[in-house]
Amino acid sequence: MNIHFKLSSAMLNHVIGDLVRPHPFAAERAGFIGCKVSRSREGILILGHTYMTLQDNWYTDDQRYGCFFNADAMRAAMQFALTNDASMFHVHMHEHMGLPWFSRIDLRESSKFVPDFWNVRPNLPHGTLVVSKDSAAGLCWYPSENKPNRISRITAVGFPMKFLERLT
C-alpha cells in the first residue's frame, strides 16, 4: 500500500522545535499529530493538522527508555482522536542528519500502543513517525491489518517543499 504523509513546513518546524527541548529526566521527547485521511489514485494520504505536545509530567522516569509516557498522554491523544475523528501519529526525533529509522524498542512499543487508537477510531489508520534534522520515516497501521506498512512518502508542504521520504 502506498501511503503519503503530508504536513506543513510550519508544523514540521513546530514539531522539531518541541522535540529538541530538553526534558527534566527523559532523554528524548515525543508528541502526537492529529491527522485527516484521504484517498488518492496512488494510495492514501495522511494529512497532519494538529500537533499535540506532551506535558512534562506525562513522562515516566524509566531509565530503560529514552522516552516513556504515561496513561495521561495516551488518554489525551485518544480523546483528540475521538473528538476530531482524527487519525493519530506518534512522533519522536533522532537528532542526526539523514534518513532515520526506529530502534527495536521503538518498534516493540509502538506496535503495542498504536493499535490502541482503534479502540476509539477503528476505521482510521494510525501510526508513528521518526524525524531527523532533515528527513523522516514512518509506519502506518491500516484498519484490519495487523502489521504496519512503511510510509512511502513524507512531504513538508511549504516553501520550499521538503520531500523527507520518497520511496516511490
Binding site: C35, K36, V37, R39, L47, T50, P125, Y142, P143
Partner: peptide, 12 residues
Amino acid sequence: SIGDLGDPFWKP
C-alpha cells in the same frame, strides 16, 4: 479547521 482537511466520507 481540521474538518477542512481530508475526505469527509472516508472509509477504509
